[in-house]
Design a protein around this nucleic acid. Structure first.
Lengths: 229, 229
DNA sequence: TTGCTTTGTGTCGTTCATACACTATTCTAA
DNA sequence: TTAGAATAGTGTATGAACGACACAAAGCAA
C-alpha cells in the first residue's frame, strides 16, 4: 500500500441501473446528458463521489438529483474500471442496480440531466460511455438473483395479486410460468401474507391481495435458508 | 456527472483475498505491513491503482509484488467505500478474491510487505483497516459460489482424486458430504475427465485421477446450464 | 340473462435428493 | 507370506419436489 500513486488516483463515480415495471413491461431509468462528452445521448444516472459520502449514498444522491427517484431497493453491482472507458480521463465507476415500483415515482430531471425517462428494455437508445455493458451486467444479475432471493416484490406496490407477481417473474426471466406451480411455490416460502382484501376496479372477478412479509424473510435469512422459483 | 468533485476524488486501491488449500485446510494469504498505518499488523495484499492499469491488473500486480503469487483465478468481489475505513483519508478499495493451489506458489515478500504467509481460517490474527470485513465477505461469496459454479478445482492441482475434491467442498461448506452421492453428482456434470492414471506414493489403494474439463465447461456455460453440489 | 374475463384449485407420473454398508485393492509390518 | 490397516469404489430404496395439465366459480358488462 505505497502512497506513491496517491495524488494521481483515478477519479471515482457511481452509476445506477434502476428497473421499474410498467404495464407488465420491464423498463430502465435513463437520463439525457446535458453536457459533454456524449451531450444529448442517453446514459445511466450517476456522478462523482464526494469525499465525505459513502458510495451508496452517492448513488442515491445522484439518482435523486437527476431523476427524482428516491427510497428504493439499491444494491452494489460491479465496479467498472477499464482504462479507456471515459474520454475525460481515467474514471472508475461503481455501479449499483435498483428496483422500484415506478408508479410511486414521478420523474423530475434536474442538475446536469436534461431529461429523464423510462425505456422498455427492447427499445433502448444507444447509451453513453460503457453504459450498455453496465446495463447488460445489471440485467444478468437481476435474472440470476430473482430466482433465489425475493426481490421481485420491490417492483410491485405493497399490496399485489399473485398474478401480478407471476408477471414480474415472467418478464424478468423471459419465459412463461405455470400458474398452479408458481402459486404453490411462492406460497410455500411462507413469505407472503394473505390479506383480507381483493383488488378493485377490475372488469372481472377480483383477485386476492398479498403482502410481502419482510419480518418472515429476515427470520429465514438468518437461518441461511434456500428457495428457488 | 458534474466535474465539480473531480479534482478532489477519493483515492483508489485494490485488495485481494486469496484462498489456498493446504493439507485439507483452507488458508488465506496475508502480508505483514511494513509501513504506517497499522505497521506490523497483518493485512490483505493490495495497493493503489495506477492511472494506466485496469483494476484487475492492479490487483494481480500488487499480489505478485507483495507475495509472489501470480497466475491465479481472480474475480471481483465488492467495492468497500465507507468514509472512515482508512485513517489516511478517503480511500475506496475494490476487493478481489482468488483461489490457488498453494503448493504451486512459493511465497516471497517484497515491496511494502515485510512478510507474507498463509493463515488457517480458524487461526487468524487481527487484521488492519476493515480487512476482517472484506475477508468475511469473500468467504461468504466463496461458499455461495462453490455450490453452483465449478471453482473448487482452482484449489487443486491439475490432476486430482475425487476424494480430494470432496474434501475441498467439505472444507468450504463446513459440513460432511456423502461419498457416493458426491461422486454421482460431480460425475453427472460431465465436467470431469477420467484419466488413465492413479495417485502414487500412498500407503493404501491408489485412487484414480481426474482432470477438470474446461472445454466442456465453456460449452455448458454458453447454454446457461445449471448444477448444484 | 348471457357472455366475457380472470381467479383459484388437485393429481399423477417422473425426477432428484438423501440415507446407508460392504467388497476390492494396495501397502506395511510382523 | 500373511494378517492387518487404510482407503477406493460401488447400488438401492424411500421420500420430496417438480412439472404437466383442465375446469368450475366469481364478478362485471352489455
Amino acid at each position: 500500500m505505497a502512497p506513491r500513486t496517491r495524488d494521481r488516483s483515478p477519479a471515482l463515480t457511481v452509476d445506477a441501473v434502476v428497473f421499474g415495471l410498467d404495464d407488465d413491461d420491464l423498463k430502465v431509468l435513463l437520463i439525457r446528458r446535458g453536457a459533454a462528452p456524449f451531450r444529448g445521448r442517453w446514459a445511466l444516472p450517476g456522478g462523482f463521489v464526494a469525499l465525505d459520502e459513502d458510495l451508496e449514498s452517492a448513488a442515491r444522491r445522484e439518482l435523486a438529483e437527476e431523476t427524482g427517484v428516491h427510497d428504493l431497493y439499491l444494491e452494489q453491482l460491479y465496479t467498472f474500471g477499464a482504462v479507456d472507458r471515459d474520454p475525460r480521463g481515467r474514471i472508475v465507476s461503481v455501479a449499483y442496480y435498483g428496483l422500484v415500483d415506478l408508479h410511486d415515482h414521478r420523474l423530475r430531471a434536474a442538475t446536469d440531466a436534461a431529461d429523464a425517462a423510462w425505456f422498455a428494455l427492447d427499445d433502448l437508445p444507444r447509451l453513453a460511455f460503457d453504459h450498455d455493458g453496465i446495463l447488460e451486467a445489471a440485467l444478468e444479475r437481476l435474472r440470476g438473483k430473482v430466482r433465489y432471493r425475493p426481490i421481485g416484490f420491490e417492483l410491485l406496490p405493497a399490496k399485489f395479486t399473485l398474478t401480478q407477481l407471476q408477471r414480474v417473474y415472467e418478464r424478468i426471466l423471459e419465459r412463461p410460468l405455470d400458474k398452479r406451480n408458481f402459486r404453490r411455490k411462492v406460497l410455500a416460502t411462507g413469505l407472503l401474507e394473505e390479506l383480507d382484501e381483493v383488488e378493485t376496479d377490475v372488469a372481472h372477478r377480483a383477485a386476492r391481495l398479498y403482502r410481502f412479509d419482510r419480518r418472515a424473510y429476515k427470520r429465514l435469512e438468518r437461518r441461511g435458508f434456500h428457495f428457488e422459483i
